[in-house]
Design a protein around this nucleic acid. Sequence first.
DNA 1: TAGATTGTTAATCGATTAACAATC
DNA 2: TAGATTGTTAATCGATTAACAATC
Lengths: 214, 214
Amino acid sequence: MAMQISGASLRRLPQYLSVLVRLADEGQRNVTSAELARRLRLDETLVRKDLAMTKFTGKPRVGFGVPELLAHLQDFLGARHTKEAILVGAGRLGQALVAYHGFEKYNLSIVALFDTNPDKIGGQVEGRQIYPLWQAAAFAQRNSIRIAVLTVPSDAAQPVADMLADAGVLAFWNFSGHPLNLPDPVVVLNEDLAESLAVLSHRVGNLTMVGAGE
Amino acid sequence: MAMQISGASLRRLPQYLSVLVRLADEGQRNVTSAELARRLRLDETLVRKDLAMTKFTGKPRVGFGVPELLAHLQDFLGARHTKEAILVGAGRLGQALVAYHGFEKYNLSIVALFDTNPDKIGGQVEGRQIYPLWQAAAFAQRNSIRIAVLTVPSDAAQPVADMLADAGVLAFWNFSGHPLNLPDPVVVLNEDLAESLAVLSHRVGNLTMVGAGE
DNA sequence: TAGATTGTTAATCGATTAACAATC
DNA sequence: TAGATTGTTAATCGATTAACAATC
C-alpha cells in the first residue's frame, strides 16, 4: 500500500530541490506543477506524481508551498541528518570526490580514506586522513559507518565490498565499474563514467557521420 | 527501418566491452549470450537484443566470437578514432576528470582547459594548458572541436554552452547540474552526482529506519 | 541427426503522458 | 460562483522478459 518510489522519480527530486532553493531565495511563496515542469523540461503531470510519491500535497488554485516543499524534500531525501561515510581508493577520482562539495548538500560526510599505496597512507586529503586498507573494516565497525564510496580498481571492488559488508556497511557508492554481488539488504549504487562516455561517443560519432556524408 | 539504439542499450555496451576485454585476455574464442548475461547479471535475451542492435550476429551452438565482437563494439561506440574535446571550468571536478584515465579507452582526448580564475589561467593540469574562458569559442572554432566537458558552476552553464554551440561544438558533457537548452542537432549528456547521491541518501535513510524501529 | 544457441515475435511490466473529476 | 490547479484514473509508450522457430 505504501507505494515504493521509483528510482526514476527519486532522481528527479534533487532537481526540484535545486529549483526550490532558487525560488525560496527569490522569496516566492508558492509554485505550480506547471512552473516546476517548465523549468526542468518535464511534463507537469509527472511533477505532480513525483511529489505525490513523497506524500506532499499542494492546494488547488495555489500550487505547492515553496519553503514547505523544500523542507519536505530535504527530509525525504535524508538530507537533514548527517551520515558518515568512508572512501576506499584514494586515487585521483577518490580525491576529487572528497573535495567535491556536492556531498555537503546531502549531509554526507566522508570521515576517512583508505588505500593500499604506502606513499599515500598517512597523507591527508582535504583534512581527512588516509589509512591503510586493512584497517577499513575495523574502522567501519568501530564507528558504525553505514556508507562506503568505492573508488578502487575494478579487480579490488568485490573483495573490498565483501570485507566492508561483513563489517556492517549497508550502502556502497560504486565507482569501480565492476558490478558488485552483495547480500540482500545491502544497497549498491553504480556510477560508471564509462557508460556515459560511451553514449556521448556514439552520438558524436553519428553526428559527425551525418555531417560528413549521406 | 534502421532501428535507433536506445540509451539503455547503449549504456550496457561498455559493460559487454569490459567483459570481452577480460575474456580476450584469457584467450577465450567465443562467448554465449548466457555467459555474458551471467557475468553482468542481465537477462540473456536482453544481451542478444543489445548485440543485435549493433548489427553483430552470433552463431547458433557457438555463440559470439570474442575478438570480433570486441572490435565491433569498439567501432560501434566510436572508440577507434580519436575525438578532441575541451573542458570548461578547471575546478576540482574538472581537474579530476582530466586526470581520469577512463577517457582514453574511448579515445576522447581533452586538449585544453578554460577558466575565468586568473590564478588558474596559465597553469597546467596533466600537461594541458589552462586558458582564459573568453578564448574558448575561438579555440573551439579554430581547432574544429566538437565536444565540450562543462564543469562550470550551474549559473555559468547555459551562457557558456550557448557560446560554444555558436562556435560549432556539437556535444556537451554537462556536469553543472543545470539543464541546458540548446538547438536541435546538439547533443547534451547530463551527469549529475547529486541525483545519485539523492538515491543513495534516501535508500540509506530507509535502511537505518528499518534497522532502528518499526 | 539431435540439441544447443541464436534471432525474433509476442507478452509483460513499469514509467510517462493524457484525461478528467475533485477542490478551493 | 467560475476557473485554475491539484490528485488520480485510464491510455500510451518503451523497455524487458518469455516463448519459440530458425539454424548450425
